[in-house]
């Protein structure tokens, strides 16, 4: 075990990462839960989700975010919550990247389903930042996974 691994999987860091990620998701979920039609519009703007599923996704995704965020904050079922969050982040990154690649500038709707009007250039810049931010959060989820795996290994070793 290198020193770096030790620090990166240290419980002190893990608990903070877990709380931060949980808070991020709860904060992101609340405005969308309050106004589902606006968020459904955001989902529609991505032009990736088939029409029949736009509303269903607009309704359920914020609740998944909220429950997973709460699970991380409270430390209940945190592994499952972390996995779902990681999967969602991958979906977000792919969705934004597809639209960046095809030059379709949209508002991400990540934290605010009623954004102010922006220019195309501003939107593209924001989308790039969102991809970077989401990769950062994915790394946080990765840290949680790594730390839990290591602690499981340690537990198994000490049980022998």
């Amino acid at each position: 075990m290198t020193r770096l691994t030790h620090y990166l999987t240290h419980p002190w860091l893990t608990i903070r990462v877990q709380l931060a990620l949980g808070i991020f998701f709860v904060v992101a979920a609340l405005p969308k839960i309050v106004d589902p039609p606006s968020f459904a519009h955001m989902v529609y703007n991505y032009r990736i989700v088939p029409g029949q599923f736009v509303n269903l996704m607009g309704l359920t995704m914020p609740w998944i975010e909220l429950l997973c965020g709460l699970a991380l904050i409270l430390g209940i079922w945190k592994e499952a919550a972390r996995t779902i969050i990681a999967a969602m982040l991958v979906v977000f990154i792919v969705a934004i990247s597809i639209n960046l690649a095809r030059g379709h500038a949209i508002d991400c709707g990540c934290f605010d389903p009623n954004p102010r009007p922006k220019s195309r250039a501003e939107r593209v810049e924001d989308m790039q930042l969102v991809v970077v931010r989401d990769i950062g959060m994915l790394l946080m989820a990765g840290q949680l996974w790594w730390a839990s795996r290591r602690s499981a290994q340690c537990a198994a070793r000490s049980a022998q």
Partner: peptide, 22 residues
Amino acid sequence: ERKLALVGAYPNALKVPAEAAT
């Protein structure tokens, strides 16, 4: 005002609009 129909009806949901020249 905050309710959504569970099944959406958006025929153009997968059509990417041509970018307006801003």
